[in-house]
Amino acid sequence: MGVYDFSVATADGGSRSLGDYAGQALLIVNVASKCGLTPQYEGLEALYRELHGRGLEILGFPCNQFMEQEPGTDAEIQDFCKASYDVTFPIFSKIDVNGSNTAPLYGYLRTEAPGDFGPQSGFLYDFVAKTFPDRVGTDEIKWNFTKFLVGRDGEVIRRYEPPVTPEEIRPDLDALLG
């Protein structure tokens, strides 16, 4: 099984097979519009515009599980992304990335790349460790803008925790895309 075996809900109420992206490298990101990390949309969009022609797809999945920082409807989220950051990569329907209603895609991603903040420090790590201590040391998504890099074969390559910026991922993307 790989990422391309999943289907996801689109923001307009439809469904899309991730098999439609077979042969492309993917950067899958849980996003939010009212988060301190929301400006990462700008970096994600820059990567998409620069690398889409080389085979990169960025897939955004809104999630409201982190202090309700994505409260809008799917239509409102689409409008925000377009108006605020001129996002052209796909933003899908809002999902859960943790808990009993975890979207199957995210259950798979978490299993394939459990990730962890590790022995880091910094504002976000300290905040999550204090506010949600049960998440540290688990495969759960820790916060908005967790990113998963998926190879052209649909296999998960790496997980990047929220503080890692799109610009910091660029070298890995260049290596993957050739």
Score class of each variant (00 low, 15 high):
49 R>K: 11
50 E>R: 00
50 E>I: 02
51 L>V: 08
53 G>Y: 00
53 G>L: 01
59 L>G: 09
59 L>Y: 13
59 L>I: 14
61 F>T: 04
61 F>R: 00
64 N>L: 07
64 N>R: 01
65 Q>E: 14
67 M>G: 02
67 M>P: 01
69 Q>W: 04
71 P>N: 07
71 P>Q: 03
71 P>E: 09
72 G>E: 12
75 A>M: 14
75 A>L: 13
76 E>R: 01
76 E>W: 06
77 I>L: 14
78 Q>D: 11
79 D>W: 03
81 C>W: 05
82 K>I: 15
82 K>F: 15
83 A>E: 13
85 Y>K: 01
85 Y>P: 04
86 D>T: 01
89 F>T: 08
90 P>C: 14
90 P>K: 05
94 K>E: 14
95 I>M: 11
95 I>L: 12
96 D>V: 00
98 N>K: 04
101 N>F: 11
102 T>F: 08
107 G>K: 05
107 G>D: 14
108 Y>T: 04
108 Y>M: 08
109 L>F: 15
110 R>M: 09
110 R>P: 01
112 E>N: 02
113 A>R: 03
114 P>K: 01
114 P>V: 12
115 G>A: 07
115 G>Q: 04
117 F>T: 05
118 G>E: 13
119 P>T: 12
120 Q>F: 13
121 S>H: 06
124 L>C: 10
125 Y>G: 02
126 D>M: 07
128 V>Y: 06
129 A>N: 07
130 K>D: 15
134 D>G: 06
